[in-house]
């Protein structure tokens, strides 16, 4: 049997695809460490000191003896927002696709490790309408069909106002077409997050959004069990 071409993992393929869509509109692909300090993972993102996400039940912690300051496996790609903002001047436009970790029981829709996509835009005069426009642009391209976005009230410590984002694919044969689907959380960057990164919230504003790339694959390809992404099983990867 001759050697056939190999297959790209759907997660890294989606990351390349996401990057292709966002780099066209000026978004830089940013990255940060997977072992992240509590300071960047929580404090800098305006998580109160007593926030439940900091609990051992939710977050993987490194042993005190192994680290100089409290360190976790990052629970989201959002700390890269803080890291990037403190080293750059607005306008800032970044996406951060990357692996994140949660200490939660696994099932077909939950994994202790998964991939997240973070987006951040900070400039003068940025508002929720810009966020809506960017997301419509992204989903329309990613799902190859005109897509509408809807905001609902939401809450995340690092944004205010916060919104939940639903999308609806308006056209095409896809199973997704014609119905509202909850896809991500987003909002205007909280003034505490901007200030802590040395950006004046009275001069600049920004939006941020975050979603699971694993779930994008569930929607796009019909993957039924997100654990399949991480088994190294070629019966899975070779379907892509």
């Amino acid at each position: 049997m001759e050697t056939k071409k190999g297959h790209q993992h759907p997660i890294t393929y989606m990351i390349s695809e996401i990057n292709a869509i966002f780099s066209e509109i000026g978004y830089t692909f940013a990255e940060g460490p997977e072992a992240e300090t509590e300071y960047y993972n929580f404090d800098r993102l305006n998580f109160p000191i007593n926030h439940p996400a900091r609990d051992m039940q939710d977050t993987f912690w490194f042993k005190n003896k192994d680290v100089q300051e409290p360190t976790v496996l990052r629970t989201h790609t959002s700390p890269v927002q803080a890291r990037y903002m403190e080293n750059s001047e607005p306008p800032i436009r970044i996406i951060v696709p990357g692996k994140v970790f949660r200490n939660e029981a696994t099932d077909a829709t939950h994994e202790a490790q998964f991939y997240q996509l973070e987006g951040l835009c900070v400039a003068k005069g940025v508002h929720l309408g810009h966020l809506k426009g960017i997301l419509e642009h992204f989903f329309s391209k990613f799902f190859s069909g005109k897509t509408e976005i809807r905001f609902r009230p939401g809450f995340f410590p690092f944004v205010e106002p916060g919104v939940e984002v639903d999308m609806k694919l308006l056209e095409g044969e896809s199973k997704l077409a014609g119905k509202w689907i909850e896809v991500m959380g987003a909002g205007m960057v909280h003034p505490n997050v901007l200030s802590a990164s040395g950006i004046d919230p009275m001069e600049y504003s920004g939006f941020a959004f975050g979603m699971g790339i694993d779930r994008l694959g569930v929607m796009k390809y019909g993957v039924e069990d997100i654990r399949d992404y991480y088994t190294g099983d070629l019966r899975f990867v070779n379907q892509f």
Partner: peptide
């Protein structure tokens, strides 16, 4: 191109 397939495994 030479038949290698990409996997992602557990951390």
């Amino acid at each position: 191109n030479i038949g290698f397939t990409e996997v992602i495994t557990s951390t």
